[in-house]
Design a protein around this nucleic acid. Structure first.
Length: 560
RNA sequence: GUCCCAGUAGCUCAGCAGGAUAGAGCAACAGCCUUCUAAGCUGUGGGUCGCAGGUUCGAAUCCUGCCUGGGACGCCA
């Protein structure tokens, strides 16, 4: 596939790989078809050069020679000048280490300055159409900590996929049908009655959150006791519709404020209204995966490796959660996505096998649906784990956290760790305006650069005619190399669905900026040419930090 | 009992399509502000990568078993 818009560094790596492969063939170590994919990696130890390959070890079996001998024969055939290689070393058991001619790095700055906000973009996803469904919290209460992590990870992943050349659609599945909505109506009814001073019990599985109490009070204020006169059924329909509207508006508002946009809100009820559920079940029946037993209708999930078969239609004729969910996933697939990603909380992981079974029963490969599990969040305050209770509705909400902690710190903290790791969210650290707080560390790096650029401007330094080849100090070269990794970091994070890599990258880049800042004075009127080159470097770092921060939903200030 | 996630420095975690001497932040200790923001930098100490086997030239990384912590195993959603 033709890859356009390729990063300077990636282009160079591809050239080096091609040259190595050619050398293997030239040295008659292996036939062209036999040569394994050349792996170029960045050695951990700087002393081992810029890139290393283990190809000599991999070829040992094919060429039937010791790795170090293979390395000798191979490197003799390399045209190093052609691909900017300054030095080649053979080390250890047979690694071939390459030290690059740093001149190529000078091309990076004009590329970054030119691309600006688009720096980091690639088409490594080749336009694959991916739909990501995330958050999808029931509209029966406030978003809590777990949803906040899901929202942060989901949104960041979407941003990253988008930047890496995938076509992404973000969707929220609204569970506005089923028992929980009936319970919502009953809960609101109880709170409304209570607000009127009546002794009215909450339903068995009612929602005890403060938001429901508020709804009851609002209704009491606006309608007095006029709603009591309605027939029971009419009352519940009213409470249901009203409650859904209020809860949904609140969810949408909170998520928007949290910088988590959705392209599409999909209503579960629409599956009923548009008669999507019966045909989906019938389709499975035609394929032979449906049977009747004990007065219920079952899906033969065991045919696809699930532990047990699953009920779709209960004895009382109503659907289980799975039925509309199968119809929903069929609907998504009918919309033509190449891949579906569902982001679920860890407590739903047991649901994965049956959903994969359903996908296969519908005639798709299991891996068409990818489920990303977000592990649990523990909240710590004053060094102690904060207990949460769903029953009493006592839980820390997304809204409270936004007010208390701030959006930037939250977004950063929630994608700081790998999603399949449990997360300890330290309120005191997230709130602290100190150097302990990593989000400030990144923001401070950006603000520092802005200050320097501003001062240069005030001093009338126009650096348009910079010469990037003047950047030869160790710290400057390290920064350049780090900048060059950005596009690949995003592509990797997209492919592996690991948004936390971007957080780590922006932290590392910020660390190198701070280190550079302390080692070198950027603006030096005595040496204008070097100053201009450094200013161009600073602007390139600024752009890259800003782009990375944007991907994880963190804003970067111009001053702090 | 079955399944999923985790177990790496005192603490919180990276690293896990096998690679060279296992990293970062915090905490500890020692330094750096008449110089572009010290919310910063520099340095030191700190490890049986849960345990035991196995595969491999090479394992924190792959396989098996076990231990510990968390979660899931509904005709709930």
């Amino acid at each position: 596939m033709e890859v356009t818009n390729m990063n300077v560094m990636q282009e160079l790596q591809e050239k080096v790989k091609a040259e190595i492969k050619q050398a293997v063939v030239k040295a008659k170590l292996a036939a062209e078809a036999e040569v394994p994919d050349i792996i170029l990696e960045k050695p951990k130890d700087k002393a081992h050069g810029d890139y290393a390959t283990n190809i000599a070890m991999q070829l040992a079996r094919i060429a039937k020679k010791p790795p170090r001998q293979i390395a000798e024969e191979l490197t003799a055939q390399l045209d190093t000048a052609k691909v900017s290689i300054k030095q080649v070393d053979i080390a250890g058991p047979g690694f071939i280490n390459f030290t690059m001619n740093n001149q190529y790095l000078a091309e990076l700055i004009p590329a970054i300055l030119n691309e600006g906000q688009d720096y980091g973009t690639s088409d490594s996803g080749a336009g694959q159409r991916i739909q990501v469904e995330f958050v999808s919290a029931n509209p029966t209460g406030d978003l809590h900590l777990g949803h906040a992590r899901g929202a942060s990870v989901g949104d960041s992943l979407c941003n990253i996929l988008d930047k890496a050349g995938y076509k992404v659609q973000r969707e929220y599945y609204i569970n506005d049908a089923g028992n929980q909505i009936d319970n919502l109506a009953l809960s609101i009814q109880a709170r409304y009655m209570q607000a009127l001073g009546k002794d009215f019990p909450m339903p068995e599985d009612g929602y005890h959150g403060p938001d429901i109490i508020q709804i009851g009070e609002t209704l009491a204020e606006e309608h007095g006791d006029s709603l009591v006169e309605k027939a029971e059924q009419d009352q519940l329909v009213f409470f249901r519709t009203y409650g859904l509207q209020v809860e949904l508006d609140k969810l949408a508002h909170d998520l928007k404020q949290f910088r988590v946009p959705f392209d599409h809100w999909f209503s579960e009820t629409s599956l009923y209204d548009e008669n999507k559920i019966v045909p989906a079940i019938e389709l499975l029946r035609e394929k032979g995966y449906i049977f009747e037993e004990d007065g219920a209708t079952w899906f033969r999930a065991t045919a696809f490796g699930d532990d047990k078969d699953r009920v779709l239609v209960k004895q009382d004729g109503s659907y289980t959660y799975l039925s509309p969910d199968i119809a929903y996933h069929k609907n998504k697939l009918d919309r033509g996505f190449d891949k579906l990603i569902d982001i679920w909380g860890a407590d739903h992981h047991g649901y994965i096998p049956r959903m994969h079974a359903a996908i296969q029963a519908l005639g798709y490969n299991a891996d068409t649906l990818e489920v990303q599990i977000i592990q649990m969040v523990n909240l710590f305050e004053n060094g102690e784990k904060v207990k949460m209770s769903k029953r009493t509705g006592k839980a820390v909400t997304l809204r409270e956290l936004m007010e208390e902690v701030g959006i930037d710190a939250m977004r950063y903290f929630f994608v700081m760790r790998s999603a399949d790791s449990h997360l300890d969210f330290d309120m005191d650290l997230a709130k602290s305006q100190s150097n302990d707080n990593p989000v400030y560390y990144v923001q401070y790096a950006h603000a520092r650069i802005c200050t320097m650029l501003k001062q240069a401007q005030e001093k009338g330094i126009d650096w348009c005619d910079y010469d990037a080849s003047l950047l030869q100090s160790e710290k400057a070269v390290d920064l350049l190399k780090k900048l060059g990794e950005f596009t690949q970091v995003i592509a990797d994070a997209a492919e592996n669905r690991t948004p936390h890599r971007v957080t780590q990258y922006v932290f590392d880049l910020s660390a190198q900026l701070h280190s550079f800042y302390n080692a070198e004075k950027v603006i030096n009127q005595e040496d204008l040419m070097a100053t201009k080159a450094r200013l161009a470097l600073m602007e390139s770092v600024r752009i890259t930090i800003a782009n990375a921060a944007t991907l994880i939903g963190v804003q970067v200030p111009e001053s702090m």
